[in-house]
Nucleic acid binder design. Structure first.
Length: 826
RNA sequence: GCCCCUUUAGCCCAAUGGCAGAGGCAGACGACUUAAAAUCGUCACAGUGUGGGUUCGAGUCCCACAAGGGGCACCA
């Protein structure tokens, strides 16, 4: 049965041999209508086609493949699709640099990655592929945009937005990291622009609360980052009368219990309120405010967020009245108050808030202590005390603790119509307009008569015009504005002259719903089929890097909830289970050309073979930890694979031997492996799973070389088990082993059997005896030994007697049949 | 400053509260070989970051601290 030419393991000829056969076999097709297997949806985060695959992709896809292939072997119809997140700036920048069309660059890279994925033996269903820059895909971005628009979830507003002067485009809040553009690290500035937004905040509560349902199935780190980002805080909105103004000003506070300690009010300098209050003051105040406003506008977030920065601000010459005690509070404008959070105005309680305290110290404002926390008085120390305590100097509320005080004071003011319970979110609406070319055109037409007019559904997609003749260089307005043939259209409503919106959508829109598009990637009837979504979605297992912990996952969750409310899906969370793999490092740091520590995937594959690289990724350690390529050994992996392969070559029994006649010890090893393997894979302990396969191979080797011999049925059973398990990590080697064992191609579809637990029953076990927790003796006993028998045996042991000496026995713990612990006095 | 994770052999990493070692790398030795490589086999190496506590028993649970990594950080 053995191929005579194959006496030595040669991974490279094995790779060449099997690729075309798999192309024919298509073992991972998930689209057969008469497939009766239960469904499972395993999804890898799709790549951006910025070049060929790199080590990071290799890790992610190796790990995703372990899971996808595992479920296939457990009898599931696994949908494991792939696509490309192919709109976005790198294509545009590359095009500008080389004078090419972004399209050509993008699709060349996709072809390259696709061929590398095939060679890497990813278990993708190649009949389910999508590319977000295809009109057939982004048409549905536009359709969804318009559906959102109908429901008020997409809207346009003018505000101060994040602006990257280098990318020459606006950025979402989420794309600004430490005041820098996440893409190019330029200092982000502010710019007042009218832009499109998705109303994520409408879902803020659900986005936060539903994280609880993911507990245990998503990494806790991601859950906490999302919670942090959404940032819900409860408190009260309190109205303050303003001298010389009819309307009161509402402030949001999480500490209504400290109201008696409010000594001034602060408003955001860039708010309308600040301007209005200043305009009612005298000339010198107005001038000072204008100066300050200019200064604030010039500063960027880097400066603003520096923690050691001194507080700045100007007095607006106006006063508010504290609703609890009638105190006159000076109103200041200061940039530590943000115009787009809460109401853009706060009551300042320096005694119990660090920020207010440093402001009070800087400008010599009074400090009134109203909570006794047992610490030194902040009015004296000038150090705010923000902890729990008892109310003082708060009139009828004195003596109350924090929670009661919050309740009581809020209720008291609410009765007078001056306050209400409120909550606020750190989360802002999602700014989706981008002033760039390579993205989905926003399907809105601007008409001087009719205003914003949606492009009628039957006119979708609004295709991108060719880049030929367009200047793609960033210049602060969309390159599409210059495509006049494309831009100028008739208004769908009145037929008059009108213009298309020339901005394109943030590419995170593309990836917010792509997991649904895989259900029918080529459909021109709908974004996705609702009935298929019921069958396949949500995604059972999502695999990808933690870099998307906030942005992508939050947006996809928002889309899912919106689609749920539109009646298009029947679930509210898109990704039931999430695995974040770590990064691949080299010598302790992320690989980069500039650091000179880049490891080329193609070179690794050429040197060690696909299987050894994949196995190394899985074996290196827990998947969520980083892998330092300097610490692992792909050549060691290759050595092991050769060892496994040779075991298959040494099997001399026929395909249909009866395993029951096999060597009991080796059968036991095989079935103990089968018992352990599944839970390890399902618990993402791939490294331990691989170690178990190695253990079984070692046991098999010993059996073959020892008394058992290669003809024993247990050897075949063991090696077949190895081949199946190994196909999760090393598909080429496993397939070749499968053939050596006399099977038709398709080890990936071979079922992983359940362990026969009856083979694992022990009737003898080693019992240990401890004295005061220290091991003193051990001996074999029957597994059904009684407690008394075991205890008697323990006291019979000379070693135990010696250990006890003449001390008195305090307690004897017996855990039959494996343990006796004798505790002595003293 | 706040929160989270990690810390086990020279290295990467295992260990339902019950004998610290499953697996690998790097080593040493042996067999095979004229020799080497490959292969096969054997072996050594830590008492689990530090200090307390709970327990009959702690790598595992609790508290504090240290080091490394990550996240958040003027959001009222």
């Amino acid at each position: 049965m053995t191929d005579q030419n194959q006496t030595e393991y040669d991974i490279f000829s094995i790779q060449e041999k099997w690729l075309p056969i798999w192309d024919e076999l298509k073992p991972f097709n998930s689209g057969n209508a008469d497939d009766s297997r239960p469904t499972k949806y395993v999804l890898d985060m799709f790549p951006y086609p910025s070049g060929d695959l790199h080590m990071g992709h290799a890790e992610a896809y190796a790990l995703g493949d372990v899971i996808a292939r595992y479920w296939v072997q457990k009898g599931f119809n696994v949908m494991h699709p792939i696509g490309w997140d192919s709109f976005g700036l790198p294509a545009e920048n590359a095009a500008i640099k080389r004078g090419l069309d972004p399209k050509g660059w993008t699709y060349d890279n996709i072809a390259q990655q696709r061929s590398s994925m095939r060679r890497y033996a990813c278990s993708f269903d190649w009949d389910r592929v999508l590319i977000t820059s295809d009109p057939i895909y982004y048409r549905w971005n536009q359709w969804l945009f318009l559906e959102f628009y109908k429901r008020g979830l997409a809207y346009r507003k003018n505000s101060n937005v994040n602006w990257c002067p280098s990318c020459q485009t606006v950025l979402a809040n989420e794309q600004v990291v430490q005041g820098l553009c996440e893409r190019c690290d330029s200092v982000v500035t502010k710019k007042a622009l009218t832009q499109w937004y998705f109303k994520v905040t409408e879902y803020a509560d659900r986005l936060l609360d539903d994280l609880d349902t993911l507990e245990g199935n998503w990494p806790s780190k991601v859950l906490s980052m999302q919670r942090n980002w959404i940032g819900r805080s409860y408190g009260a909105e309190v109205e303050f009368e303003i001298e010389g103004r009819t309307e009161p000003v509402t402030v949001f506070t999480t500490r209504p219990d400290t109201l008696f300690g409010a000594t001034f009010m602060v408003v955001a300098p860039d708010s309308d309120l600040a301007a209005e209050l200043a305009s009612g003051a005298d000339a010198s105040v107005r001038a000072a405010f204008q100066d300050y406003l200019e200064q604030v506008k010039k500063s960027n977030d880097i400066e603003r967020l520096a923690t050691d920065r001194e507080k700045t601000g100007v007095f607006l010459g106006r006063f508010a009245i504290n609703p609890v005690n009638g105190a006159r509070l000076p109103i200041w404008a200061a940039d530590y108050v943000l115009s787009d959070y809460g109401t853009g105005a706060i009551m300042a309680v320096p005694a119990h808030d660090d920020r207010d305290m440093s402001f009070a110290v800087k400008f010599d404002l009074p400090v009134v202590t109203v909570v006794d926390t047992g610490e030194d008085d902040p009015a004296v120390t000038k150090v705010a005390t923000s902890g729990e305590g008892v109310l003082i100097a708060s009139g009828e509320f004195n003596g109350l603790a924090k929670a009661e005080a919050i309740q009581a004071i809020t209720d008291h003011l609410a009765n007078a119509g001056k306050a209400k319970v409120a909550k606020n979110f750190r989360l802002r609406d999602w700014l989706i307009s981008r002033q760039r070319y390579w993205g989905t055109p926003i399907p809105i037409i601007h008409c001087d008569v009719c205003g914003e007019v949606p492009v009628p559904a039957e006119q979708l997609p609004v295709e991108l015009p060719s880049a030929a003749g367009l200047d793609l260089k960033p210049k602060g307005s969309s390159p599409l504005g210059a495509a006049s043939d494309w831009l100028n259209v008739n208004c769908p409503s009145c037929g008059g002259d009108a213009r298309r919106d020339s901005d394109t959508m943030d590419t995170f829109v593309d990836s917010s719903w792509y997991f649904l598009r895989f259900l029918s990637p080529n459909s021109t009837d709908a974004a996705f089929p609702v009935d298929e979504a019921k069958r396949w979605a949500p995604v059972d297992q999502y695999v990808g890097g933690v870099t998307h912990a906030i942005l992508h996952l939050l947006y996809a969750r928002f889309f899912t909830k919106a689609l749920h409310d539109m009646g298009l899906v029947d679930f509210e969370e898109p990704f039931t289970r999430l695995l974040n793999q770590g990064m691949v490092l080299m010598n302790g740091s992320a690989m980069s050309k500039s650091r000179g520590n880049l490891v080329a995937l193609s070179e690794q594959l050429d040197e060690h073979g696909v299987d050894a690289v994949r196995l190394t990724m899985a074996f290196a350690g827990p998947p969520e930890e980083d892998i330092d390529w300097a610490d692992v050994s792909p050549s060691g992996s290759a050595k092991f694979l050769a060892r496994a392969w040779r075991a298959a070559n040494d099997v001399t029994s026929g395909v249909d031997v009866d395993f029951k006649a096999g060597n009991p010890a080796l059968r036991k090893a095989t079935h103990s492996f089968l018992r352990d393997f599944g839970p390890l894979i399902e618990g993402f302990k791939f490294n331990v799973g691989v170690a178990k396969v190695m253990e079984l191979v070692n046991a098999t080797r010993k059996a073959i070389d020892g008394d058992v011999g290669g003809a024993d049925p247990a050897v075949r059973e063991a090696v077949q088990t190895v081949a199946k398990a190994l196909s999760l990590f090393a598909p080429y080697t496993a397939e070749d082993m499968w053939q050596l064992l006399g099977h038709a191609p398709g080890v990936a579809l071979a079922m992983l059997p359940e362990a026969d637990l009856s083979l694992l029953v022990e009737n003898q076990v080693v019992a240990i005896v401890q004295v005061d927790g220290k091991l003193r003796d051990k001996f074999e006993v029957a597994t059904d030994i009684t407690k008394d028998e075991l205890q008697a045996l323990a006291f019979d042991s000379n070693a135990v007697k010696r250990a006890i000496g003449d001390r008195e026995i305090a307690a004897v713990i017996v855990r039959e049949p494996k343990l006796v612990n004798i505790a002595t006095m003293g």
